[in-house]
Design a protein around this nucleic acid. Structure first.
Lengths: 223, 223
DNA sequence: TGTACATCAGTGAACGCGCGTTCACTGATGTAC
DNA sequence: TGTACATCAGTGAACGCGCGTTCACTGATGTAC
């Protein structure tokens, strides 16, 4: 941890603004060039500013990438948590998994680059195992687990990581189930994003429905 | 297609040798730097040769990447086809899918970088949709389909793509089943390679067995 | 409401790096008589 | 078996490029009296 300069509020807000602007352009670059195409110099140019200017806002390129990944985790987590709002406490496990699966796929399709940013193996030269990132990952898993276990509290509670730790250490079957659900969703979604289904003229929607049915209909939810 | 120079056999063999050497080093670079780290100049240096020398063997960087991808497809296809040899004709669909799944995971674990090379979305600046590559992909799918449909012929026969086309156009349920099997395998394997299971202290072997059981035991093979 | 001062956003030049690729060339190697 | 020739593998210099990052600096902006 560095010595954080105490910034005056008005300047702090400005700073956050610019950081956001940078991230937005970075996401555009990610979209049409992949993560490796994210370049501070190019972002600066797009922003109408000189290259070194950005070093006021990010210590270096890695910090930018890092914050993109953390943001993406947060985005996906929110997308999954949102459907289970107030008054949805009584829904069945099946219904919740169903909705979770749909939300998951939807988010990935809406933000394919961010999804890839999350689930590609760590980029070379970029240490993805930072504390922040693994925290974000555990938090996401907490939401999925929460959906499966039934309470909607976990969805709201950002302390998902604690639950994950608990479920893991007790070897709770629900935890393993959550991982399996995730594994299948990820398989489907990443093939879909890669264009595999399209290339093979497979009806992705129908296939997805079939997979979701299997996930919820035949007792697997009790495994 | 270019005007291929008629090369004398002895020189042709030498040429193939060097191409292989280049690929081997490229795979090493892939292993510890990702696909983007594959550099002709660096390969040349490693090979004790000047940079431009490699342009005798590959038209450019893309052609090298391309051939790596095609090779990887071939390698995976062979790994999947091999288990079903002579005298295995009578095995059940379940048993064959089981073996297929194990072979798939095994190959991916043995050659994680090549697996990633295959299934990452196309790299920026590199056109992965070349004719060769999609041919290779279809051929691979042909093997998977062959396993599921029962004949061992398809495993040996490189004309898998024709079968895929047929199954697809007739909407054969086996084809959709093959895609679903593939989707799940990919989900599991890519999470495993990404270290997700390890990070969550999940027993990957047990999880995999559970997934394979589901794949073969409860009537899904008849979907 | 006005002024003096400290803070800090942004500049431009510079560094060293490695990349893909081209070009005209030299020298070795296999081939044909 | 020996020699003359054509082929072609490999060289080294050069091109233009964009990257991340540092540095000493200027000028605007918000702040405190």
């Amino acid at each position: 941890m560095e010595a954080e300069p105490r910034r005056t509020p008005i300047r702090e807000r400005f700073r956050e603004q610019v950081r956001d602007d940078v991230k937005i352009i970075a996401l555009e670059q990610l979209a049409d060039g992949g993560a490796q195409a994210i370049s501070l110099n190019a972002i600066a140019k797009e922003l109408g500013v000189s290259g070194p200017a950005l070093y006021r806002y990010f210590a270096n390129r890695d910090e930018l990438l890092n914050s993109l990944v953390v943001d993406a985790y947060g985005g996906l987590r929110d997308a999954l948590a949102r459907p289970v709002g107030a008054g949805e406490r009584g829904t069945s496990v099946s219904a919740r998994i169903r909705r979770l699966a749909r939300a998951y796929r939807l988010w990935a399709r809406e933000q394919p680059h961010r999804y890839e940013l999350l689930f590609r193996p760590p980029l070379p030269g970029y240490d993805a195992h930072s504390t922040q990132i693994s925290e974000a990952g555990r938090s996401l898993m907490g939401v999925v687990l929460g959906e499966i276990e039934g309470g909607s509290e976990a969805s709201v509670n950002p302390l998902g990581s604690a639950e994950v730790l608990h479920a893991r250490s007790t070897g709770a079957p629900n935890f393993r189930l959550a991982v399996r659900v995730w594994s299948r969703l990820h398989g489907f979604v990443s093939l879909e994003l890669g264009g595999a289904f399209h290339a093979m003229s497979v009806d992705a929607d129908a296939l997805f429905d079939a997979e979701v049915d299997v996930l919820t209909d035949n007792g697997e939810t009790r495994a």
